[in-house]
């Protein structure tokens, strides 16, 4: 009984998040005709594919008690990097993708190494990473570059039919990342090490967990996710744009927090992040459906949700501590 109660309390933020999603989606379905459909749900996945991929990587970083402000800039860099390679230097898309993923991973790993070996604040180093990646993106090209490669045309026509609706390539990648991320976070040694590290780095170290490898690894992984998100963004827009993903890191962090993950690290669940993406997407879709509401309401609602969730966490944790 007691164990059950504790289990319930541990999953309470998750349940609240799920409840809010159902509530929001339900309210939108009642308010807007035609909102309640499979198509809304699939387009929600398509429209938020690159944000979702970034949010999964961000979740893992936040698990470890860190933060990565550079993802948005990495997306911008990857986007223009890939497009320029394909269009200007005639590199086949597959090779361009591999190079972009390698660049993202290397950059993440480099930041992780600085953070770990020199004990520098992740906040500051990833901030430098943001400047670096964004600057590099504009250095490659200040204008957006359209991609007209045959592979891209085929991929943008690619669809997986799901009932009356269909999933695009980006949505499929997002779903794969969600599944992989879930497995990594909750069913591997790395995932447990990250959570332990976020709870108490000292304890994790004393337990003999490979702190260094996990820390460098998680930033490298997030760099990989950022690059992957950038590639998906090129698929989504059919072009590369150096200003892609400006401020996206904040949305990703907001999604993670709305998903019930503690920003101090050590506690959280990837399913929460999935729900966070769905909530974020639902608000966006509802504002689009309404047509009268201006886009800035999105920011205000997300800010309000953030506040509500952080207060809720505070309430639950405060009770636990006393």
């Amino acid at each position: 009984m007691k164990a059950q109660a504790r289990r319930l309390q541990r999953h309470l933020p998750l349940l609240v998040t799920a409840g809010i999603f159902v509530l929001l989606f339900g309210a939108a379905s009642v308010a807007y005709e035609g909102f309640l459909s499979l198509r809304t749900l699939t387009s929600l996945l398509t429209d938020n594919a690159f944000l979702g991929i970034a949010a999964v990587g961000m979740t893992l970083v936040i698990f470890s008690g860190g933060i990565d402000l550079s993802v948005g800039a990495v997306i911008g860099f990857t986007s223009i990097f890939t497009a320029t390679l394909i269009e200007r230097t005639q590199v086949p898309p597959g090779v361009a993708w591999v190079l972009a993923l390698a660049a993202g991973t290397a950059m993440g790993g480099g930041m992780g190494a600085l953070i770990h070996f020199y004990r520098l604040p992740p906040f500051l180093i990833t901030l430098a990473g943001l400047f670096l990646a964004r600057g590099a993106a504009f250095w490659i090209n200040t204008e957006s570059v359209g991609i007209g490669h045959a592979v891209y045309n085929r991929l943008s026509a690619f669809e997986v039919p799901v009932g009356p609706a269909s999933l695009t390539a980006g949505a499929v990648v997002l779903l794969a990342v969600l599944v992989l991320g879930y497995g990594l976070a909750h069913h591997t040694r790395l995932g447990r090490t990250l959570l332990a590290m976020g709870g108490s780095e000292q304890s994790a170290l004393l337990m003999g967990l490979p702190i260094g490898a996990a820390k460098v690894g998680v930033y490298a992984l997030n760099g990989f996710c950022g690059a992957l998100a950038g590639i998906v963004a090129t698929l989504y827009t059919g072009s590369g744009n150096p200003s892609m993903g400006v401020g996206l890191e904040l949305d990703a962090i907001a999604i993670v927090v709305i998903g019930g993950t503690l920003l101090t690290g050590g506690r959280g669940h990837l399913v929460g992040t999935i729900l966070g993406i769905l909530i974020f997407g639902t608000i966006q879709a509802a504002i689009l459906f309404d047509g009268r509401l201006s886009s800035w309401w999105m920011r205000i609602v997300v800010g309000g949700l953030l506040l509500a969730f952080v207060l809720l966490q505070r309430l639950l944790l405060g009770r636990r501590r006393t």
């Binding site: 907001a254 920003l263 201006s294 800035w296 205000i300 800010g303 506040l307 952080v310």
Partner: peptide
């Protein structure tokens, strides 16, 4: 609250409020 989170809320919502003020 953690300062990063607490001020992130106003960072996200504040720009929305500013846009609301001047009606975009």
């Amino acid at each position: 609250l953690q300062p990063i989170v607490a001020t992130l809320i106003l960072m996200v919502a504040g720009r929305g409020v500013a846009q609301l003020l001047v009606d975009g």
